[in-house]
């Protein structure tokens, strides 16, 4: 696990991805710090920092003596945040590459439509 960003952020993102994908449904428990540390071979303090990031964002909450659980509304809030970031994360790099290749915005529209058609008609 390494894309250059701090490891605690990568851990937080990975759990968040699990919540968004429905792997950790709301109200269920996420793996413990010890389990995450052992699985990824990551310092437990780093894992704790990543988990705390999600607690601060209200996505996880602690049940004393039991562990960390996915909060109600966590999935919806994650999907909303990702939708808001969609243009910056995906569309801008797409347009930058299109410009580098000399493709116009209309060309890009056409390619998007064609690709979507390919996907929908197997």
């Amino acid at each position: 696990m390494d894309d250059g960003r701090p490891i605690f952020q990568q851990i937080a993102d990975q759990i968040a991805d699990g919540i968004a994908a429905g792997a950790y449904p709301e109200g269920t428990q996420v793996p413990s710090t010890t389990e995450l540390s052992a699985f990824h071979r990551i310092n437990p303090a780093t894992v704790g920092k990543g988990v705390n990031l999600l607690v601060e964002r209200g996505l996880l909450h602690k049940r004393r003596g039991l562990g960390m659980f996915v909060s109600d509304g966590a999935r919806a809030s994650l999907l909303a945040a990702r939708t808001a970031a969609f243009a910056r994360a995906y569309v801008r790099p797409l347009l930058a590459e299109a410009r580098a290749l000399g493709l116009s915005t209309d060309d890009v529209h056409k390619i998007v439509d064609e690709t979507a058609d390919e996907r929908s008609t197997p």
Partner: peptide, 27 residues
């Protein structure tokens, strides 16, 4: 190492040349 540290936190100093491999273990 990480399992035992999670259960029994303590201070560890470790010398290494395997920086990429061990980076995630370090604070």
């Amino acid at each position: 190492l990480v399992t035992d540290l999670a259960e029994h936190p303590r201070t560890v100093v470790v010398s290494t040349h395997l920086v990429d491999e061990m980076e995630a273990l370090l604070d």
